[in-house]
Design a protein around this nucleic acid. Structure first.
Lengths: 225, 225
DNA sequence: GGGAGCCTCACCTATTTGGGGGATGGGAAA
DNA sequence: TTTCCCATCCCCCAAATAGGTGAGGCTCCC
């Protein structure tokens, strides 16, 4: 592993360059990407790792602002490495580098804690855009991946309990209720008056045959796990 | 959630303008947005709806390529309308228009089938970018929302929170609590005074960092699913 | 156009809850 | 021994909640 020297105290007006660490086992890719990153005036590659093991050792001490992680690494995969890094650095943005947009791998990486995806044949300008997107707190990825991620939230219509037919509004209230919100907080979330929330709750209780919010939450969580 | 380059220019023979339908109850917003859309050379606003009900009637016949949907509509919310539209037109891209980035609403909209989000005070250029992103099969949204969506995929990875060590008695109370019992009922079940139950609850809340029984139940049910 | 169902809001009251003090004893740990 | 935690119980009080009644407005359906 090679640590690039930090640039010696840039003149005042320059914003500090964001520190990037690259985890990539192939030497040629490692070199070309780190060079590319250093060519950006607002980012600097402060280190490269050839393996997941090395990444776990060095990244916590390097404290980078972003990690670029190859999804395929020998022995410990980039996904496994991401999982372990997450345990130590929950807030560290990790962007996966992938050759192809494999559906399974993408979602495994997301579960592991990845914040974005970059194709390996990404053009320099797009790499820069992705890094900027990360800096803004975003999640850089291709359109296709983004759409698939969003679609994975689709609720295929849920029959749940056949007996209780709650109206849409009532269900919204129930969802917020089951997150532990008070009537006042629910009212704020839905832009309603507290009395209206109370009114919905009365109907919910009646339909669910319960007598308290805790009971409603218990039933809802049990049926809808 | 966008990173790929914008395609430079349309090929010579003008591509057909993509049809957009706008669902928005406020007349002034409706007018200005539809005018804005029509000002783009590659998009055309083929219809506007003042309500979710109208949207459900007209959109299936208009067959637009994109729908811009106000998330807050009178009577039928944009979320509800999205749910119903999805049943009829599963592939139709629906972009929600929202005033603020309300966490709850965003996720409810995603579950309902939304493909993206636009803030109402979006600049014309950004609206155009969003429409282009939709056309490319992407999911336009702000960086913050994208990150939150991605983070929601995180696997808890921890079996239960080790931080909360409840005593045996406290756990018993919590179990009964999560069945929806009131303090009085819990006291009867455990042959205690109501005050003792209340005392246990205070400690439980403190240890779990919650402020209500509903919140405690929600947490307990979520952790022990 | 009438009725059913929702959504919204209001006002009322009784009860429950949340949270703040305590006190007492017992057992475990230091 | 002293100190801690646990379990039990008590009082108090502000806030939240449960439940009732009612009412206006809006859709949808017949």
């Amino acid at each position: 592993m090679k640590i690039e020297p930090l640039q010696p105290a840039n003149p005042a007006p320059v914003a500090p360059r964001l520190k990037v660490v690259l985890v990539e086992d192939k030497p040629d890719l490692r070199d070309s990407w780190s060079r590319l990153i250093n060519s950006f005036s607002d980012f600097v590659c402060v280190g490269t790792c050839v393996s997941g093991e090395e990444a776990l050792r060095t990244i916590p001490t390097l404290r980078p602002d972003v990690v670029l992680m190859d999804i395929f690494l020998p022995r410990m995969s980039g996904i496994e490495c991401t999982t372990r890094l997450r345990e130590v650095l929950p807030k560290l943005p990790i962007v996966m580098l992938t050759g192809v947009e494999d559906n399974e791998l993408v979602f495994m990486a997301l579960q592991a804690g990845a914040d974005g995806f970059l194709l390996k044949h990404t053009k320099p300008a797009d790499l820069h855009l992705a890094l900027l997107e990360v800096r803004r707190g975003g999640a850089p990825m291709t359109s296709e991946i983004a759409r698939r991620v969003v679609e994975s939230f689709r609720r295929p219509a849920r029959p749940s309990e056949p007996g209780v037919h709650l109206s849409v509004r009532e269900e919204e209230v129930l969802i917020l209720l089951s997150k532990g919100y008070s009537n006042k907080e629910i009212a704020e979330q839905l832009s309603l008056s507290v009395d209206t929330v109370g009114s919905h709750l009365k109907h919910i209780y009646e339909k669910m045959h319960v007598r308290s919010r805790a009971e409603a939450v218990a039933r809802y969580m049990a049926a809808n796990a």
